[in-house]
Structure formats: C-alpha cells, structure tokens
Amino acid sequence: MNDPSAIREHLMSSFYFRHATKAFDPERRIQPEDFEVILEAGRLSPSSVGYEPWKFVVIQNEALREKLREASWGAQKQLPTASHYVAILARRDVRYDSDYVDYICRTVKAMPESILAKVPETYKAFQEDDFHLLDSERALFDWSCKQCYIALANMMSSAALLGIDSCPIEGFNYDRVHAILEQEGLFEDGKLDIAVMVAFGYRAADPKRPKTRRPASEVVQWVE
C-alpha cells in the first residue's frame, strides 16, 4: 500500500472501527501471526530515554483468568471471552543507577565506554531535577507506567489495523490483582508490577452507537 490517500483512509477507518469491546466472540481466535504483530508493536514502541520499562504477560490460563475476573470489575465479560489477555507490567528498577538501566545502556544499546561514563549523571539530572522522579518510589513507578501506556496504545491501534478488537482494562482492584500476579511469580522479585491490562479478540456484537468524541476545535490548538 504505497498510495498516501489509501493509507490515510485505512488508518482513519481503523480508528473509527476501534472501540472498547465489552464482550468478545469466544469461538473466534486471533491467528498466531497476527498476535505476534500486536506484541511486536508493543515491543518496538518508544519509551522515555529508551528504557523499555515493560513486560507483556499473555494470560491464557483459564484458572488464572478467573482469579483476575474476581478482582476486576471492569473485565467481567472480557476475561472469559477474549482470545488473548495481556497484563502489561511496569518495571520498578528504572533508577538511573540500577542494574537494569546499566543492562539497557551497556547490552541493549551497546553504548561505548566513553558514553557509559557520562550516562549516569545525565540520567540522574533528568530523573532528579527535571521530572522529580526520585522524590518517591511511587513517582518512579508511575513514570514507568506512563511508558507502558505508549505500548498499550500501539498494540490496540495495530490490532485495529488488522481488524482485531481490544479493550484496555483499568477497572480492577490493584491490591488484589497485585497479590494474584505476585503469587504466580510474575514480578521478578519485586522488579515488576501491574500497570494495566488489555483484552484482544473479535467483538460479539457491533457497538450500539457510533463513536463519540469532542470536536477537534476543542481538542486541537495551533500556536504559530
């Protein structure tokens, strides 16, 4: 698809198609190659200073889904019917001087030693002075969660482009879901925690009304 107008039309139609699907058709399953694209859209998403502070846990186990359903008032219909259900975990160990950040810089980004020597002070200034992320553990974790939402949006948008439905899930009791996932050993000894969840599949029925949004005139402002 090299025609810009066709790309624009496909993109916009996908955004109008996407809606927060409350119930999926349990008989329809997402093809593995399509779901791999959705996961890759998350993995390849941008993150602040490239920390990639996320992990995508695909929960297909029915018993675990039922435990989560009992703690998730906003996923009562989605959890039993979704083709795929993902818990997006955010990293807690994203302090500038952590082993994880060193791994990202040294191994993933393959920074040369001359750059590595300067990185800690640069990232410390960003986290401590610019965004006040070191004021509390919660501030640093919330920053990680913000990055996870970038991946979440890209995953849902990619799904819509493929004609696949989705629903982001924030309607859950944090303490109960935290305890469930911690008991499953998914937090890597406290280095991860739940940020948000998302269901994927194919809608059981079309929405009862068209998409509603505020007009662009209220949302967009140009400063020239």
Rank of each mutant, 00 (worst) to 15 (best):
L140Q: 10
L133H: 12
P112N: 11
S166N: 05
I88W: 03
D175P: 02
K118R: 14
E128D: 15
L116D: 05
D93M: 10
Q127W: 02
G171S: 03
E137A: 07
L133P: 08
C105R: 15
P80H: 08
S98L: 02
N154D: 01
R91S: 04
Y103H: 13
R65L: 13
T122Y: 11
R95G: 15
Q76Y: 05
K118F: 10
D102F: 14
A75K: 04
D175C: 03
L152V: 04
P120H: 03
G163I: 07
A151N: 01
S158K: 11
V108W: 09
I180N: 01
H84T: 03
Y174A: 04
D135Q: 15
T107Q: 12
E70V: 07
M111A: 12
Y174S: 02
R92G: 11
V94I: 15
F131T: 02
Y96T: 05
A71V: 04
R69V: 03
L133T: 09
V177Y: 04
R176A: 12
A117F: 07
S114N: 14
D99M: 07
L140H: 09
I150R: 00
I180T: 04
S98Q: 04
I150C: 01
W143Y: 08
D97Y: 14
G74A: 08
K146C: 12
C167P: 00
M111R: 05
A139Y: 07
R91T: 05
S114L: 11
R138V: 15
G171R: 01
E170C: 04
N61F: 00
C105V: 06
E121R: 13
H178L: 08
Q127Y: 03
T122L: 12
C145E: 01
D165H: 10
R138D: 15
L64G: 10
R65T: 12
A75S: 07
I180C: 01
L89W: 07
F172D: 12
V177A: 08
H178M: 06
E121T: 13
I104W: 05
F172G: 13
S136L: 06
I104L: 14
A75C: 05
G163P: 07
N61V: 03
A90P: 09
Y174K: 04
A117N: 09
H84R: 15
Y174L: 03
A139W: 03
S72H: 09
N61I: 02
F126I: 10
Y96D: 09
I169A: 00
P112T: 12
L79C: 05
R106A: 14
L64Y: 00
G74R: 00
